[in-house]
């Protein structure tokens, strides 16, 4: 086959491999699930069938949509706060050994505290509002991001740094012309982890204190044995995680194509 004819065919087979195959597997598993529930007569409060999850969730679609938006808001604000704080923190960590020695133990300490245990204390401290949820989201998400950015900033080849020095690059020029762009593939691997963790953090926050959000919906639905609704919320949370993750992937591909193809990010 001539290459120009082979290319679309290959793309089609890749599409089959990457999209159709996993979709078929998921649909197949769903069917097995549905069939098992009916076959073994599993009670709905233990394991609802996918069809029941769908009908029960659609019945209160408006309410679920509101909860979804509330969670999405917490996730995104927490994620953005993580970025805004992680970037200067990573720059500070890599700027000197003294700063690193001063800050790093505190960072590790924040990670060794169980966030679920911290959340109720934060509610007492910050009040029963949005703030403790965002803080928990941030605390869950920011650490891998700081480490990824710091690793990227340190991974610059020493020759590149010497090159900058030989042209008398200022500290600021070295940072924004060499170190930060060089770190972009690392930053994006960190962002991918952080955005997935933001969803986890937001739900933890909502478990402890919330009057809305998908985490709150799961807690209240299970309390009233509305298990299908809890499953519905769970599925929406996973979809939210996947969509946000893919959004980061797309942003990287569009803004920094060289980074997406650098091989630094083998995932996605």
């Amino acid at each position: 086959m001539p290459p120009e004819a082979a290319a679309p065919a290959r793309r089609l087979s890749r599409l089959g491999q990457e999209v159709l195959l996993p979709t078929a597997v998921i649909v197949g598993l769903g069917l097995v699930w549905e069939a098992s529930v009916h076959l073994f007569d599993i009670p709905v409060y233990l394991l609802p069938a996918p069809s029941v999850i769908w009908t029960d969730s659609v019945a209160i679609a408006g309410t679920i949509w509101g909860h979804t938006l509330a969670t999405l808001y917490t996730v995104l604000v927490g994620f953005v706060v993580s970025i805004v704080i992680s970037l200067p923190l990573a720059v500070a960590l890599t700027s000197s050994r003294a700063v690193a020695n001063a800050i790093y133990p505190i960072l590790v300490l924040t990670q060794s505290i169980p966030k679920v245990a911290l959340a109720p204390i934060l509610v007492v401290l910050l009040g029963a509002n949005e703030l403790p949820r965002i803080v928990v989201t941030f605390l869950v998400a920011f650490f891998p991001l700081v480490i990824a950015i710091a690793t990227g900033l340190m991974a610059v080849p020493s020759e590149l740094i010497e090159l900058g020095r030989s042209y008398k690059a200022s500290v600021w020029q070295e940072l924004h012309r060499i170190r930060l762009p060089y770190a972009i593939p690392f930053i994006f691997s960190g962002l991918k982890v952080a955005v997935a963790l933001s969803v986890v953090g937001a739900v933890v926050g909502e478990f402890v204190n919330a009057d809305q959000g998908l985490g709150y919906l799961i807690v209240s639905a299970t309390a009233f044995f509305q298990v299908p609704v809890a499953f519905g919320a769970l599925i929406i949370l996973s979809v939210m995680g996947i969509v946000l993750f893919q959004a980061v992937v797309v942003i990287e591909r569009v803004l920094f194509p060289w980074s997406a193809e650098s091989g630094q990010n083998t995932i996605a």
Partner: peptide
């Protein structure tokens, strides 16, 4: 008045070839 070439090309992976060549002028 000094230019340096290292063992590795150490070009900036995000910049085009001409931008890489212009890099010292931008720094200076």
């Amino acid at each position: 008045e000094v230019g340096i070439v290292f063992q590795n090309a150490t070009l900036l992976p995000w910049a085009s070839i001409v931008e890489n060549v212009l890099f010292p002028l931008k720094i200076m």
